[in-house]
Amino acid sequence: MSPIVKKKGEKFTLSGKYLLFILTILCTGLIVLTLYTDYISRPLSVIAGRIVVPMQEGISYVGSSLSGRSEELVHIRDLLAENERLRSQIDQLTIENTMYKQDRYELTNLRDLYDLDAQYDDYEKIGARIIARDPGNWFHSFTINKGYEDGLEVDMNIMAGSGLVGRITKVGPNWSKVITIIADNSYLSGQVLATEDTLIVSGNLELYADGVVEFEQLKDNADRVVIGDKIVTSNISNKYLPGILIGYITSINRDANNLTKSGRLTPAVDFERLDIVLVILELKQEIEE
């Protein structure tokens, strides 16, 4: 700590080599310290959160409205022509629309009764906006604009729409870091909804471009699991609440050991276009030992 403070004070004579040496030791110490405790990361995250987060919120707001504006400009000509054409169809469509509206009303009612989403309603949720994404290209985490002042805690689950996005790994006063299930260092336990066979879902950077994630260790000797099956979080996962939709199986292969199967699955959430996510304010119950 002292080399930095001294530098601002008076004329500083420590040469770069020694400063590098001292700071390297400091960094190594910090790495070890933050891996095992949150002694340092807590105050740092408060300071950084107070300074940077308000700016990030502003910029993401401006950024999203700017990109929306530029798209508008590109499409304005097409839209004018289209508008002309559509105007002539309006009358006809209005009549149809009223009919459809009635149908739709009925449909949503029926859906509400049947939908899988119903089981998520038990959990208390709050919405949060994504304000920044991992500046590197290696992992896919992001920060949201709510923190422990809003009641958020580490390991709370994040959803978008009806699918699982990830979980909180770090909280500041007004921001939290979310690790997504597609990140390369993410593993979670899931199960096939239809057969209740458990499997491990892991993110993989190599598969990211194809929009899929890996699963492995599926024990399915009766060959009942098929492509298109829904995968939900399992009840034996220690971080994720049970029954949240993860995605759909897109391919299955038998492993070389002939006992387990592995394959790919498509997440239910479109991770490219996330803007607002839901935080489930309930933690998976852990058994105290």
């Binding site: 960094c27 190594t28 310290l33 740092l44 500046p135």
Partner: peptide, 21 residues
């Protein structure tokens, strides 16, 4: 590096070290 670490890193100090070097 510290800024990156605080918001997106798993351990504070890792990116700080890379950037520092």
């Amino acid at each position: 590096g510290l800024l990156t670490d605080i918001f997106f890193g798993d351990a504070i100090g890792l990116y700080a070290m890379i950037y520092m070097y």
